[in-house]
Design a protein around this nucleic acid. Structure first.
Length: 568
RNA sequence: UGGGGUGUCGUCAAGUGGUAAGACACAGGUUUUUGGAGCCUGCAUUCGGAGGUUCGAAUCCUCCCACCCCAGCCA
């Protein structure tokens, strides 16, 4: 983990913790936890929580536990447990030996429930689920007591024990906390704390057929682990009285403080696990690791660095107001990171053949390219130059618009780190009129890209040698959704109708420089003038290279061109 | 017309009675063998609204308005 050498910016949770530390609350300890339910893959929203919890612990010499909230066997799977561990590790956090499962506490939780019954604070309720709902009342009307609310402690104890023993069908009974059916807070209207589920649990197997509910489990798990600050999202604010009630009623030796913050939302992105699952199952994406997904596996495959994600999480801040962060900030964060660390490389996505008429046929020369123009420590490499090259189609216009500085008939430009070339002719497809090949001359005096006479050129193009370059597939990604806030359901439309039909463009006949032959899976590069790309870790092979575009470079020309088109 | 929250620049976000940080975005300039990166400049006389307290209010008080969450045997 990176050490924090400058004082991090304040946020309300940091403030609470430093106040607590000042007051010597919890003997100056800070213990947090990241408590995912293993029912799906982690996404960038979870990253915010992970960074917050692990970060807060780290900056205060504290501890952060990784705890799986696995109390609902119908939804949870080991596959998810494994992926979550991997993602947290990848993000750069280490829980050491602090790996826990709520299911580790089932026995203790059961004992606590027995205590609650003995205290007269819990009872077995035999109403059906529907009846419980009816009895609960509404937002504006109080609920009414269950007829089972007055069962004796002995009967409750007996029934609860038999629930555990498996004597009853699913749904026959539940254990409820006895609080207040008239509470304005619905969570306090005798919430269910145990239900019967004859289900196999991924860790406890068939040992249990009753499972504790979240509200009951979470606070006690926190208390058992000695958590000091239990940080969760806003929607749990209403649950805090229940969190406190359970711990107060049971007089647990430790009473963590629940603090709620606003979850991360990003423009053009959906963060709901349910909806992400729907995209996966409906085949709208290739899987949880589709590079367009906001999942950590997806982003990793796309080429995002953990550093950039952590940086985003620090930059967005922590507060209590619902907000939607501009995805441009995320893109800024990756570019900032990759600009520093990604070696530069030449790749042509949409090749246009260029013949250098005055360059000797059959000749090839090796040019020396720096791997990073601002970082000599990254070394250099040799790149072959020859008579037939490819340049980017976009870099040539037969009829160049205003402010287009690149190649055009009669125009001279620089080939990066190579020579000045001048376009002297072109060949077109007879049928379509499409330019299929350019004829240029080069100035042998400009080797390396400098003209001895000092003449200037307005553009520098990237290129590859036709014969020496490698073919590659390149996948260009755009936002998965075309709508700024696809999660918003005000328009009543299914969120999938907002899917961006152009979120993936696959280019099959790209050409990349020969040094990429040895590119390792996951390797990240800047394709000069285009963007940051990584070797796809799933589909790329030595024989058939596949690259994913992580993010494009900022493109001033595209902006100008767009403005010009809007004017016209 | 119940309860719990939240309202500061286009988007995030500091600010906790002493006269509106910062970031992204945007716009201009500078520089440049990536129209990249860098660098510089600009960008809230005003803090949801209206009153009030005060020498002084985004910060305190009153009323109002808007938005979010809650009626799982999900988490």
């Amino acid at each position: 983990m990176t050490t924090v050498d400058i004082k991090p910016p304040p946020n309300f949770i940091r403030n609470i913790i430093s106040e607590d530390l000042k007051a010597n609350k919890n003997d100056g300890r800070v213990v947090t936890r990241f408590p995912p339910e293993p029912n799906g893959y982690l996404h960038i929203g979870h990253a915010k929580s992970i960074c917050l919890n692990f970060g807060l612990a780290a900056e205060n010499n504290g501890i952060c536990n990784l705890r799986f909230d696995d109390t609902n066997p119908t939804k949870e799977e080991v596959e998810y447990v494994e992926s979550i561990k991997e993602d947290v590790r990848w993000l750069g956090f280490d829980w050491g030996d602090r790996l826990f499962y709520a299911s580790d506490y089932f026995e203790q939780l059961y004992d606590y429930a027995v205590q609650l019954i003995k205290l007269g604070k819990a009872y077995v309720c035999s109403l059906s689920a529907d009846e419980i709902r009816e009895y609960r009342g509404t937002l504006t009307e109080p609920g009414k007591d269950s007829p089972y609310r007055t069962r004796s402690v002995e009967e409750n104890l007996d029934l609860f024990e038999r629930m555990r023993a498996g004597e009853f069908e699913d749904g026959a009974h539940v254990l409820r906390a006895k609080i207040d059916m008239a509470s304005a807070n619905l969570n306090m209207r005798d919430p269910t704390i145990y239900r019967i589920r004859h289900e196999f649990h991924h860790r406890t197997g068939d040992k249990w057929c009753i499972y504790p509910m979240y509200d009951y489990t979470h606070c006690l798990s926190d208390a058992i682990e000695g958590i000091t600050h239990s940080i969760c999202t806003l929607e749990f604010e209403d649950h805090r009285p229940l969190y406190d009630w359970v711990l107060d009623t049971l007089k647990t030796p430790c009473h963590p403080q629940q603090i709620e913050f606003a979850r991360l939302n990003l423009t053009y992105t959906i963060m709901s696990k349910r909806k992400l699952l729907e995209l996966v199952e409906g085949g709208h994406v290739s899987g949880w690791d589709d590079p367009r997904m906001p999942t950590l596996v997806g982003m990793r495959r796309r080429g995002y660095t953990p550093e950039s994600i952590r940086n985003l999480c620090e930059r967005v801040g922590v507060a209590k107001r619902d907000s939607v962060v501009d995805i441009a900030l995320l893109e800024y964060c990756v570019r900032e990171d990759l600009n520093r660390r990604a070696p530069r490389v030449m790749a042509v996505l949409r090749p246009l053949r260029v013949v250098i008429d005055n360059y000797p046929e059959g000749q090839t020369e090796e040019l020396e390219f720096p791997n990073h123009p601002e970082d000599p420590d990254m070394g250099s490499r040799k790149v072959p130059f020859s008579r037939v090259l490819y340049i980017e189609r976009d870099d040539f216009r037969e009829d160049p618009p205003k402010k287009f500085f690149r190649l055009a008939p009669g125009r001279e430009v620089r080939l990066r780190y190579a020579y000045y070339i001048t376009c002297v002719g072109m060949e077109k497809d007879e049928k379509t009129g499409e330019v299929v090949e350019l004829h240029c001359t080069y100035d042998p005096q400009t080797r390396g890209g400098w003209a001895p006479d000092g003449r200037k050129v307005k553009a520098t193009l990237h290129w590859v040698s036709a014969a020496d370059s490698l073919e590659a597939e390149v996948r260009l990604y755009d936002h998965l959704f075309a709508k700024l806030n696809p999660g918003e359901e005000k328009d009543g439309a299914d969120f999938k109708t907002h899917l961006n039909p152009n979120s993936l463009e696959t280019l099959k006949s790209c050409r990349v420089e020969p040094s990429l032959a040895d590119a390792a899976p996951g390797g990240r590069y800047q394709f000069e003038r285009l963007g940051y790309f990584c070797v796809d870790s799933v589909d790329s092979t030595k024989e058939a290279l596949v690259f994913n575009r992580t993010v494009s470079l900022r493109d001033t020309w595209a902006k100008i061109e767009k403005a010009q088109k809007q004017k016209a």
